[in-house]
């Protein structure tokens, strides 16, 4: 272990005389000495969220997706503002069955003779409702359980990890199919039934993401510093750990919102989701499937609406991921 001193200093090494003696000094006026570690106070103070927002504002992907989402939400809240035609089956006239576009009916008619445009507009609400409320439910359950497991660790974490594994073995659609054929869910299906079932099978993913994010933050020095200031363990979780874990959770929640909308329409399309009496894009696509070859338009338009909505949420999540990237934050 004791270092050998004989080979260390080159200057005592007679084999290597310093051969060059040139001593260069740069002009001090060209290389002025600056105050060590001066605070740069030219720019306005910027929080992390402020910085993320600044980046986001310049991203076309974000602007497009945010605009589309605003439109979709507006349509789902005030459908009557976008279409005055009654799209329900009672108002449809079989005489119009599979008719093409006509005045006041820009997208033509379904096989039932309903106005396609009106159905697309009025079908928006169920998709948005399912997506939004499933996400809220999943965030509440998965977020709380994941945060507790990640922060406190121990047996809670172990139990949750096993439960998580079990739910992962049952994919969302598969689980929902099994649930949907239960006697208690077969009748009286509403949008809320679907929300419930999607939450039951959707929360593990958010729990896993939250757990990972919390674990990454919980050992940070600023959490230890807060604890040694006298902040309680729970206080440190709420004040420091959670705010710093939010970014990845927000990203995944945004993308999940899109996937839940897909799940709703897929289940409705399979005929085990929303009952046919509820207007939804999935139901319309299913209804239009039979006449696909003769009249593809009633299938195409709700499909386009569905795709654009889902795509908007996924694009928004992608843009958020870029803006909130934890690696970029460390500088």
């Amino acid at each position: 272990m004791t270092p050998d001193n004989t080979t260390t200093a080159r200057h005592s090494d007679s084999r290597r005389p310093a051969r060059r003696t040139e001593h260069f000094v740069a002009d001090v006026s060209e290389t002025p000495l600056q105050v060590t570690d001066r605070v740069k106070d030219e720019a306005a103070p910027l929080s992390l969220w402020g910085e993320a927002w600044k980046n986001l504002r310049k991203q076309p992907l974000f602007l497009i997706s945010a605009f589309l989402i605003l439109v979709v939400v507006a349509v789902s809240v005030f459908p009557g503002f976008f279409s005055q035609i009654d799209p329900t089956s009672e108002a449809c006239q079989l005489a119009n069955s599979d008719a093409g576009p006509a005045a006041g009916h820009p997208l033509g008619f379904t096989q039932q003779g309903c106005d396609v445009y009106a159905r697309v507009i009025f079908g928006t609400r169920s998709s948005v409702t399912v997506g939004l409320f499933t996400t809220i439910g999943v965030l509440l359950i998965g977020g709380i359980l994941g945060a507790v497991a990640g922060y406190y660790g121990g047996w809670i974490d172990s139990v949750l990890a096993r439960i998580n594994d079990i739910f992962f073995a049952l994919p969302l659609i598969l689980g929902a199919i099994v649930m949907m054929q239960l006697p208690m869910f077969r009748t009286n299906k509403t949008v809320w039934t679907l929300v419930l079932i999607l939450v039951i099978f959707g929360w593990p993913q958010i729990a896993r993401i939250t757990r990972g994010a919390v674990i990454e933050v919980r050992n940070a020095d600023f959490v230890t510093a807060a604890r040694s200031l006298g902040v309680s363990k729970f206080g440190a979780l709420m004040r420091h750990v959670m705010p710093n874990s939010l970014a990845p959770i927000i990203v995944v929640a945004t993308i999940s919102l899109g996937t839940f909308i897909v799940a709703e329409s897929t289940l409705s399309f399979l005929g085990i989701g929303l009952p046919p009496s509820v207007m939804s894009w999935g139901n319309d696509i299913q209804a239009a499937q039979a006449s696909l070859r003769s009249n593809p338009m009633p299938l195409l338009y709700p499909a386009i609406a569905l795709s654009i909505t889902v795509l908007s949420f996924i694009m928004l999540g992608d843009a958020l991921r870029d803006a909130l990237d934890p690696k970029a934050r460390k500088r």
């Binding site: 260390t8 200057h11 051969r19 260069f24 000094v25 740069a26 000495l33």
Partner: peptide, 30 residues
């Protein structure tokens, strides 16, 4: 200790260079 010559860089520029001992005993640049 390790080098024959030392080159000192500061903010992207070489401010001083020379034989290491000379530089250490007689630094010129602030």
């Amino acid at each position: 200790e390790r080098a024959d010559q030392v080159v000192v860089m500061y903010r992207g520029q070489v401010v001083e260079s020379g034989p290491s001992l000379e530089l250490l005993q007689n630094p010129q640049h602030p």
